[in-house]
Measured scan of single mutants.
Amino acid sequence: DDVELRDGDWRVELKDADEEILRAVEEAIKNGASEQELRELAERLIR
């Protein structure tokens, strides 16, 4: 699993992620995405 989400800690570690993925995830976090939404976003972007 390349995506690590810690309970109560919104730092997201994406291994080997490019800047576009990181920006998309950071934007989702700023917009108040839930953990499930972040997982789905990350899975779509990593593929």
Rank of each mutant, 00 (worst) to 15 (best):
D1Y: 12
D1M: 11
D1F: 14
D1G: 10
D1I: 10
D1T: 05
D1A: 12
D1H: 13
D1S: 14
D1L: 12
D1Q: 12
D2P: 11
D2F: 11
D2E: 11
D2L: 13
D2N: 14
D2T: 11
V3L: 07
V3E: 10
V3K: 12
V3W: 14
V3C: 03
V3D: 11
V3P: 04
E4R: 06
E4A: 13
E4T: 07
E4W: 06
E4M: 10
L5I: 15
L5P: 10
L5S: 11
L5G: 12
L5C: 11
L5R: 07
R6T: 13
R6E: 11
R6I: 09
R6L: 11
R6S: 14
R6G: 14
R6Q: 13
R6Y: 11
R6M: 13
R6D: 13
D7L: 11
D7M: 07
D7A: 07
D7V: 08
D7F: 08
G8F: 15
G8W: 15
G8Y: 14
G8V: 07
G8N: 13
G8R: 12
G8A: 10
G8L: 12
D9G: 08
D9K: 06
D9E: 02
D9P: 03
D9H: 06
W10V: 03
W10H: 02
W10A: 03
W10D: 02
W10F: 05
W10L: 04
W10G: 03
W10M: 03
R11L: 11
R11K: 07
R11V: 06
R11I: 08
R11S: 06
R11Q: 06
V12Y: 09
V12W: 13
V12L: 12
V12G: 08
V12I: 08
E13I: 15
E13M: 15
E13S: 14
E13V: 15
E13L: 15
E13N: 15
E13T: 14
L14Y: 08
L14C: 02
L14R: 01
L14T: 02
L14M: 06
L14P: 01
K15H: 06
K15W: 09
K15V: 11
K15R: 11
K15I: 11
K15L: 14
K15D: 05
K15Q: 04
K15M: 12
K15E: 11
D16Q: 08
D16C: 15
D16M: 09
D16G: 13
D16V: 07
D16S: 08
D16F: 13
D16E: 05
D16P: 03
D16H: 12
D16W: 12
A17D: 03
A17K: 05
A17C: 03
A17M: 14
A17S: 05
A17F: 14
A17Q: 07
A17H: 07
A17W: 08
D18V: 09
D18H: 10
D18W: 06
D18T: 13
E19R: 09
E19S: 07
E19T: 07
E20I: 10
E20K: 10
E20W: 15
E20G: 14
I21A: 03
I21D: 01
I21K: 01
I21S: 03
I21N: 01
L22Q: 06
L22H: 07
L22E: 01
L22Y: 08
L22C: 02
R23V: 04
R23G: 02
R23C: 05
R23E: 03
R23P: 00
A24S: 06
A24G: 01
A24T: 07
A24H: 03
A24K: 12
V25H: 00
V25T: 01
V25R: 00
V25Y: 05
E26A: 12
E26F: 15
E26K: 09
E26I: 09
E26L: 15
E26Q: 05
E26H: 05
E27N: 12
E27L: 14
E27M: 12
A28F: 06
A28Q: 01
A28V: 01
A28D: 00
A28H: 03
A28K: 01
I29E: 14
I29W: 15
I29L: 13
I29P: 00
I29M: 14
I29D: 04
K30C: 03
K30Y: 10
K30I: 07
K30P: 00
K30Q: 08
K30R: 12
N31G: 08
N31Q: 10
N31K: 11
N31P: 00
N31T: 06
N31S: 10
N31I: 05
N31Y: 07
N31C: 02
G32Q: 01
G32C: 01
G32W: 02
G32R: 02
G32E: 01
G32T: 00
G32M: 02
G32L: 02
G32A: 01
A33P: 00
A33G: 02
A33R: 04
A33Y: 14
A33K: 06
A33N: 02
S34Y: 01
S34N: 07
S34M: 02
S34F: 01
S34K: 04
S34W: 01
E35R: 06
E35C: 03
E35K: 06
E35H: 09
E35T: 05
Q36A: 13
Q36T: 09
Q36L: 10
Q36M: 14
Q36E: 09
Q36S: 09
Q36F: 09
E37K: 03
E37N: 03
E37G: 02
E37W: 05
E37P: 00
E37Q: 09
L38C: 05
L38A: 14
L38N: 00
L38S: 02
L38D: 00
R39Q: 10
R39I: 06
R39A: 05
R39N: 03
R39F: 05
E40S: 10
E40Y: 10
E40R: 12
E40A: 14
E40C: 06
E40T: 12
E40P: 00
E40G: 04
E40I: 13
L41K: 00
L41F: 04
L41G: 00
L41T: 00
L41E: 00
L41C: 00
L41I: 05
A42F: 15
A42N: 01
A42I: 15
A42S: 05
A42R: 05
A42L: 14
E43N: 13
E43F: 14
E43Y: 14
E43V: 13
E43G: 13
E43T: 14
E43I: 15
E43A: 15
R44A: 08
R44I: 02
R44F: 13
R44E: 05
R44G: 05
R44K: 08
R44H: 06
R44L: 06
L45A: 03
L45D: 01
I46H: 04
I46A: 05
I46W: 11
I46G: 04
I46F: 14
R47P: 04
R47F: 13
R47N: 15
R47W: 08
